[in-house]
Design a protein around this nucleic acid. Structure first.
Length: 914
RNA sequence: GCGCGCUUAGCUCAGUGGUAGAGCACAUCCUUCACACGGAUGGGGUCGCAGGUUCGAACCCUGCAGCGCGCACCA
């Protein structure tokens, strides 16, 4: 709800009256709406600013958000938001993927459950209509979830891989590659999914370790009744498709059988024994049954030896072999057991062994795939060398770098890509067959440019003019055949040199999971070379894979995948973002623990309360007063050391952040932000300046303190904004750190440091105070007076400047007062600590215990003696002194001197105890 | 089988040759006027094992072990 000036109304309630705990839910949705309203995410191709662009890895249109998406998109959002702060024109282009198999399966399942119909009952057109309906109803879910997370995508440019314009691109690419001779149709052994009823690419097959059974059986020699050849197999159910038995020609055991025949038990037939190098002498019995229709290796051997191909399986994985009625019609796994029994009944089964092997599973349907001969379209990849070189020579930089090796290895071993799918949901192959030639073409062994030139087929984006004489190929293309065009097909229509493309292509960064290097990244690089203006992106950042605490992959079936929406309900989007990124290691997997998100929430709360505290101490001025020149009300030289110190640390933070961003060290950035706010700003600075915020403080001190607070916090919130955008926006506005109508997310990072110099050793003073305070608290704690606030410390040998800081020190240490007494004569046994500001005594009635103090001092001295010994040992080592760099030796000498001085002082103290 | 990665505190992880770190968890204390989603203090590690290089190794090299992940037509 914006007011007339186009900004949110300034919150009426002062923060000091707000709840003690930060409540993210309302805040987050409010700001997201405001950013959209303010058009903060829109990219302007006409901008003079340097371009920064990133395309979203399009999630499945029917998918729902999981933690992997959260990680991936948070990283992109961080990059995009940081780029905006750096003054760049940012395009983060969103969209979704039609996800052929997954979506079709989902809709088919629903049709089956709700209407008891199959897609074939409905027919192609009606089915597709239903999928589009489904997409229209459910396709927005993941997009709205990304918005909930705070993603700063330019939603007006949202694309879908089956948009009309996008589809034109896909067809165009098919046509071009076909005409180039890189796409062809042929009968090949492919990976067949018996559930999805389609071919799959090699990448869609997941090799999975299985506990299988290895059947040992025997085939009788046709010319020598009673003599048998022993064979081992894991798939007795395909036995009916056997056309030979192969042995290794070098295997002396079987030499005598080569060229003879054995009986295949069912259906009963004579099949030859052949010799082939492929057979492993060591494995099983050393004899291999050859089933060319149902095994890739067998198929190759079959081709080599010109063997018959007998297909005994239906597309959906049932036995089709009327000559063997016992098995005919059975499911393949049922048939496997049955076949074993049948062998046993015939006395041909020798034994069955437990056997561990790898079986290829369908990525989507989670069932073993079936090698199957079928007619499919294939692609020989274009621009392979250019794409491989681009990564090898660093034109495209992979992070972590090691993935470049995985990429290179795959690029060197490319197999033709099976791009056709026997689905309806997807981009239909843009090939039409002339009706008169249809039958011949359908059964043709292969199909390529020559058929096109003869005019038998039409290949084009548009159907042929006399469409009624043509029949379109029914298959659709692999979803990835559209995804690989994503970086440029989303930026311009086919044939258009759009302003967006000119400004934002190639993209700057790509953030994605290493599991789709082959599916997507590699193919995009090739497509970029072939169809766009070169490389699609400059950097590829591969995210971690998220696992549970046991190290298992997150999965629906394990139930170990937390719902990000629930996490956001519970902790807030900022907390989820921050918590997840903070634990994401650079190259390894993430072990997800909800505790980390809780810490993110706690962190947000900490920042919120620091600001609330500030507001309690002094009414914040409304935005617009002088937001820009807020901050320092006094020249740095006149400020207490704590002020200079925290400003210098903020400046250091800015530098460190810059370095970490340059190297994409996202976890480190989160750590830096956390560490600064909590350990430096809250624990040290705020504690040290609390006195100056009390009502008893002078107005000058108060103003100065509020000034420093605002100067530091306003910048800090800017630094925080890419990671926790909502709370950064909320606090920046509430605190008046942004002008009317301005958003902190749009504000450019400050160019100048807050303090360019350290006026009077302020940072060193602050450090001395903080360290000394720690030692003093430690002393209190050791003598069990940690909770008492009326204790008195006496400082002996203190520097002159300490006099001005005793009140602060008293506050930091929870003491009643601090006396500076150069001539202090401590009663024997008074607890004492050696600090950067001299000897500090803790004189307390009843605590004067010579023995206890002697023990404590002795222990401390012992520790230091060890250090001295270490130093001395090193320095007396001639090789160290001679060969180590001079500065290292010098450093060691200094260290020794320091320890020795301390040892001397402590020794004196101990001696004073008598 | 080949390749890649990991192994540091109870847990999750930083740490590119010079005094072993963080967060969480744990223990003790504190509901003192920003925050108990908080504060203070403390205990806790032969840096997977064995060699090597070096004045010096968690870090570089070699080997080994365990775990994880890719790739590969052992039926």
């Amino acid at each position: 709800m914006l007011d007339k000036s186009g900004r949110l109304p300034y919150p009426s309630a002062p923060m000091s009256e707000l709840p003690k705990a930060y409540e993210p839910q309302a805040v987050e949705s409010k700001w997201y709406a405001a950013w959209l309203e303010g058009k903060c995410f829109e990219a302007d191709p006409a901008s003079e600013k340097e371009a920064y662009s990133i395309v979203i890895p399009p999630p499945n249109v029917t998918g729902i958000l999981h933690l992997g998406h959260v990680l991936n998109n948070t990283l992109q959002d961080i990059l995009a938001r940081r780029a905006r702060q750096e003054g760049k024109e940012v395009l983060w282009l969103p969209g979704t993927d039609h996800a052929g198999i997954a979506t079709q399966a989902k809709v088919e399942r629903e049709l089956r459950e709700k209407e008891q119909v199959t897609r074939r009952d409905l027919g192609r057109d009606e089915f597709l209509k239903r999928v589009w309906d489904w997409k229209d109803h459910h396709g927005g879910i993941i997009i709205s979830q990304l918005k909930r997370l705070g993603c700063s995508c330019d939603w007006g440019r949202e694309r879908f891989t089956m948009d009309e314009a996008y589809t034109k691109w896909v067809s165009h690419v098919f046509v071009e590659l076909f005409k180039e001779g890189l796409i062809y149709r042929g009968k090949r052994m492919v990976n067949w999914c018996p559930v999805s009823l389609t071919a799959l690419s090699d990448e869609e097959v997941i090799m999975t370790p299985q506990k299988s059974k290895l059947y040992f059986m025997k085939y009788e020699l046709a010319d020598a009744p009673g003599e048998f050849l022993e064979i081992s197999t894991t798939r007795p159910e395909t036995l009916m498709g056997d056309v030979a038995v192969a042995v290794n020609p070098k295997d002396e055991r079987f030499a005598k059988y080569i060229g003879r025949k054995v009986f295949r038990p069912f259906p009963h037939a004579e099949i030859p024994v052949i010799a082939d190098d492929h057979v492993d002498i060591e494995f099983g019995t050393g004899a291999l049954k050859i089933t060319p229709a149902h095994d890739k290796a067998d198929f190759d051997i079959g081709m080599k030896h010109d063997l018959e191909i007998i297909d005994v399986l239906t597309p959906d994985g049932h036995i089709e072999c009327p000559d063997c009625p016992e098995l005919h019609g059975l499911d393949r796994f049922v048939a496997r057991k049955k076949a074993g029994q049948m062998l046993e009944e015939r006395g041909l089964l020798i034994k069955v062994e437990e056997y561990d092997n790898n079986v290829g599973f369908s990525e989507r349907a989670h069932v073993p795939i079936e090698p199957r001969i079928s007619m499919q379209w294939f692609l020989k990849y274009p621009c392979v060398k250019e794409a491989a070189d681009a990564v090898a020579n660093g034109d495209i930089k992979f992070r972590p770098e090691r993935w470049a090796k995985t990429y290179a290895h795959w690029m060197e071993n490319l197999q033709d890509w099976c791009i056709s799918r026997q689905l309806w949901w997807g981009h239909q192959i843009p090939v039409w067959y002339h009706k008169e030639k249809l039958e011949a073409l359908t059964n043709a062994e292969s199909l390529d440019m020559s058929d096109f030139e003869k005019g038998d087929i039409h290949v084009g984006i548009e159907p042929p003019a006399d469409a009624e004489n043509w029949v379109r190929d029914e298959d659709v293309m692999d979803t990835w055949f559209s995804s690989w065009l994503w970086p440029f097909a989303t930026m311009s229509d086919l044939g258009e040199n759009s302003a967006t493309l000119r400004k934002f292509y190639p993209t700057t960064d790509l953030v994605t999971g290493p599991d789709i290097i082959f599916f997507w990244v590699a193919r995009m690089i090739m497509a970029g070379f072939r169809f766009a203006d070169g490389l699609p992106f400059g950097n590829v950042y591969f995210t971690s894979i998220i696992r549970d605490l046991q190290g298992r992959k997150m999965s629906k079936s394990l139930g170990n995948s937390p719902d990000p929406i629930e996490l956001m309900d519970k902790y807030g989007a900022d907390a989820l973002r921050f918590g997840l990124i903070r634990i994401a290691p650079v190259g390894a997997d993430i072990r997800f623990d909800e505790v980390q998100i809780e810490e993110g929430r706690n962190f947000a709360n900490k920042i919120y309360n620091a600001c609330r505290f500030r507001q309690m101490a002094g009414e914040s001025r409304r935005a617009g007063d002088s937001a820009e020149d807020r901050g320092l009300t006094t020249a740095p030289t006149n400020l207490p050391p704590y002020h200079i110190d925290i400003m210098a640390k903020l400046d250091a933070l800015a530098v460190n952040l810059r370095g970490a961003y340059a190297e994409y060290r996202f976890g480190e950035i989160a750590h830096l932000l956390y560490e600064f706010l909590w350990n430096e700003f809250c624990d040290k600075f705020l504690e040290a300046v609390k006195l100056d915020l009390r009502e008893s403080a002078t107005p000058e001190a108060r103003e100065a303190t509020l000034g420093t607070f605002d100067a530091v916090m306003s910048r800090y919130l800017q630094f925080l904004s890419p990671y926790m955008p909502h709370i950064a926006e909320e606090l920046s506005v509430r605190m008046g750190y942004v002008k009317e109508g301005e958003f902190v997310m749009e504000k450019e990072l400050p160019a100048e440091p807050l303090v360019g110099f350290d006026p009077a050793g302020a940072a060193a003073k602050a450090a001395a105070i903080y360290e000394s305070a720690g030692r003093m608290r430690n002393l209190k704690s050791e003598y069990n007076v940690a909770t008492r606030r009326d204790v008195r410390f006496v400082a002996k040998g203190a520097p002159a400047w300490l006099a001005a800081e005793t009140k602060v020190l008293a506050l930091l240490t929870g003491a009643g007062e601090i006396d500076i007494d150069g001539g202090y004569d401590a009663p024997k046994g008074t607890p004492v600590s050696l600090t950067p500001i001299g000897e500090i005594y803790l004189p307390l009635e009843g605590l004067i215990d010579v023995e206890a103090e002697r023990t404590r001092l002795t222990k401390e001295i012992e520790k230091i003696r060890m250090e001295v010994k270490k130093c001395e040992g090193k320095l007396s080592n001639a090789s160290f002194v001679d060969r180590a760099p001079a500065e290292v030796v010098e450093q060691e000498k200094q260290r020794l001197a320091e320890w020795q001085a301390k040892l001397g002082q402590l020794g004196d103290m101990l001696a004073a105890l008598g």
